[in-house]
């Protein structure tokens, strides 16, 4: 047992409330939200990861007991406040035609969206994220001249709502067919060592998940919990914004949110989580 383990054990033994940054994650715990949504937080890796990892884990597994507990009950999950705002936006008329999302969609018809995006859009001949799909609806169906920004508060709220109604669905993004070329680009980016620190996604999240880097407990970098409520900044965080932060922290020039590279990376990383369940909005540190 190393020193930190001893300290954590002693802290628990004394009944002390250890801070979330040092208390141990219960890597064997299971997640059931509200006592009814059963999440898959660990499962066999999809076939395309053969030789890389054998088991995939939700980032929830690597978080402290306190953070894990926050996600298990919607009354404790601060992200659910943004889901309520997102649901209001879903029913709010926007654009020249006075339509809302609800004019065309019943939310109960959208429960598989989060689990299957990014996905190929034949009409536009491109892989689209959920955010891109919302923007397409806004400009092409709802007559909005200026669709929401991909990383805007409104977009985060509505994508949190869309994720929340898909919670518990098994992530299953398609990587074959016309999306495959984009997926290959994402895979190449995942394994590229960027920046002056020369770190790839894989260096930390494939080769070192479960290890600590300073006070952080490295996860597999799964994105099934996005958008994520982060305790660090007390707001929702979109996945490509998280990508940007990671690439920045390698002392690299990042790609932009919405860039072809980050769309490809989002598809690839999502596919590494095929088999986990949609958790957004999850709670992370």
């Amino acid at each position: 047992m190393n020193t930190k383990s001893k300290i954590a054990t002693i802290a628990v033994a004394l009944g002390m409330a250890a801070s979330s940054s040092i208390s141990h994650a219960d890597e064997d715990a299971d997640l059931v939200v509200n006592g009814e949504i059963e999440m898959v937080v660990r499962t066999a890796a999809p076939a395309h990861l053969e030789g890389a990892v054998s088991t995939i884990y939700s980032g929830w597994v690597f978080r402290s007991d306190e953070t894990q507990a926050m996600q298990a009950d919607d009354f404790d999950n601060p992200g659910m406040l943004f889901v309520e705002k997102g649901e209001q936006l879903f029913n709010t008329a926007m654009g020249a035609d006075g339509q809302s999302c609800a004019s065309c969609h019943q939310s109960s018809d959208l429960t598989n969206v989060r689990a299957t995006y990014p996905q190929w859009d034949a009409e536009h001949s491109e892989v689209q994220t959920v955010e891109m799909q919302v923007r397409e609806c806004q400009t092409e169906q709802m007559g909005m001249e200026e669709p929401w920004g991909i990383n805007s508060g409104d977009m985060l709220d509505i994508t949190a709502f869309i994720a929340s109604i898909g919670r518990g669905q098994i992530v299953d993004v398609a990587i074959d067919g016309p999306a495959h070329e984009t997926w290959e680009l994402g895979r190449e980016i995942y394994y590229t060592r960027f920046g002056q620190l020369e770190l790839s996604c894989a260096n930390c999240h494939e080769e070192n998940y479960g290890n600590r880097i300073r006070a952080d407990h490295l996860s597999q970098g799964q994105i099934n919990g996005f958008p994520t409520y982060r305790l660090k900044n007390a707001r929702l965080n979109g996945v490509q914004n998280r990508f940007r932060g990671c690439v920045r922290d390698t002392r690299a020039e990042t790609y932009g949110i919405g860039s072809d590279e980050f769309v490809a990376l989002e598809l690839y990383v999502a596919s590494r989580g095929n088999g986990l369940t949609v958790e957004g909005p999850s709670v992370r540190n």
Binding site: T192, G195, E198, R244, V247, T250, R251, A252, E253
Partner: peptide, 18 residues
């Protein structure tokens, strides 16, 4: 990381600014 090297990087950044 290589602590005494100044070239051969992919998309080197201006420190941690992105």
């Amino acid at each position: 990381p290589s602590f005494y090297k100044v070239d051969g990087y992919t998309r080197p950044g201006d420190a941690y600014t992105g």
